[in-house]
Write a protein that binds this DNA or RNA. Sequence first.
RNA 1: UGGGGCGUAGUCAAGUGGUAAGACACGGGACUUUGAAUCCUGGAUGCGGAGGUUCGAGCCCUCCCGCCCCAGCCA
Length: 466
Amino acid sequence: MPSNYFDKMYDYAVQLINAGLAYVCDLSADETREYRGTLTAPGTESPYRKRTIEENLDLFLRMKNGEFGDGSKVLRAKIDMTSSNINLRDPVMYRIMHADHPHTGNKWCIYPTYDWAHGIEDSIEKITHSICTLEFEDHRPLYDWFLEQLKIHHPRQIEFARLNLTFTVLSKRKLLQLVEEKYVSGWDDPRMPTISGLRRRGYKPEIIRNFCEKIGVSKANSTVDFALLEHCIREDLNVTSNRYMGVLRPLKVVIENYPDEKEEELTAVNNPADPNSSSRVVPFSKVLYIEQDDFMENPPKDFYRLAPGREVRLRYAYFIKCINVIKDSNNNIIEVHCTYDPETKGGNAPDGRKVKATMHWVSAKHAKKIEVRLYDRLFTSEFVENEKDNWKSCINPKSCEVLKESFCEPYIANLKLDERFQFERLGYFCADSKDHTIENPVFNRIVQLKDAWEKIKKKMGNSIIN
RNA sequence: UGGGGCGUAGUCAAGUGGUAAGACACGGGACUUUGAAUCCUGGAUGCGGAGGUUCGAGCCCUCCCGCCCCAGCCA
């Protein structure tokens, strides 16, 4: 915290004045700019550059004591107005600002600039290496110069490229706009690449750390593929999280040959990826919900889920076969009627017959209604930086889809509040830290599972989307 | 067109004179009670380009090209 060192910094500034290496300058901000020169033209020395040490000492003290107005004077380092590095053209060390500071209140009316404060803080804290981003490479000679003149502990500044990610923005300036212009719900919106956003989304700290180790550190400006972050999330959650069944977009299934009032409790493994996993019980009955995407009336060749006349497995339950489809007056499918094979309880057929698909489901009678928020990448453009001023027009309109008519198995009531879990075949989810309650559960999708079927659909040109 | 950086596969990234690691993505196959996971498997005759030094160059030298940053009393 720089403000902890304001006294020390002041003393160091006096030390530089005494060494004839700093002076009080009365040039206005505009004049200072003119005197500084340009990228190709050298600057000219300030008329106040030759003030005596005594005069500088006096003026600087009076600056500190509040005798001068904002912007009327600054303290500058005396380096080289002709330097090809503009940062060395007598940079400002202190400016007058009669403003309250969040930590020091009204004690000070002169405040140090970044370049002056930075190295001193590092030095006082006995840092050995000071890591920062590429744009400060030009400042390193100045960082070194101050520490050199002060003859104090001299840490080494090393610059690296900052992290960029595809399909998102990370600059504070842009993030602020997203918040202020209400493109997102706040700094902790689960789509935001902020710490609070990532946390609310359900990313675990160790996942982020692992991701950072994988991408490495270099000086090359680069943009890491968002898919790598998603991979790291899945890699971790796959082995650490329990599976439950939830149906996002429900389609009613009626098992015609299943007794009306009958109920069964079926055993399901909580985490198949963990050999020591415990298990739970899932209720089964005559009327179920399955995912709308898991049924097609006229399926293409590569679709191997439920369709008329076709048999599939309901996970941990039975084989069912579609025998009829019920539609409303608009020709929308509202119910799928099936028969089940009692011999296949648990999911295996004694006669050894195979089934191509295994589907998730919930018992309608026992299901808990939940709200689900499906988050996706915030932008549609891979390299948002390249969009220049158009970047906001690339915001993904489908980056947050809210489903209020989803259902899940009753076991969800036992969920720990910070538990990340998988809805089988869908993705990883967690309870929203702000809006979730036991009565009205709200779940955020952390990341989808990889979806081979989605790829096949794309290859087929999306022509068979129902 | 001053100065400071960077350029190895679609995206990251090792490599520091001895004959192009790895990850993700992508393609092919196996397996599968998650179209997940897992397991095999394919891809740079080539390291921005051109010359040069060397028995040998992504690494050294020269020139060229491209991209990023700097003219705040911002950080």
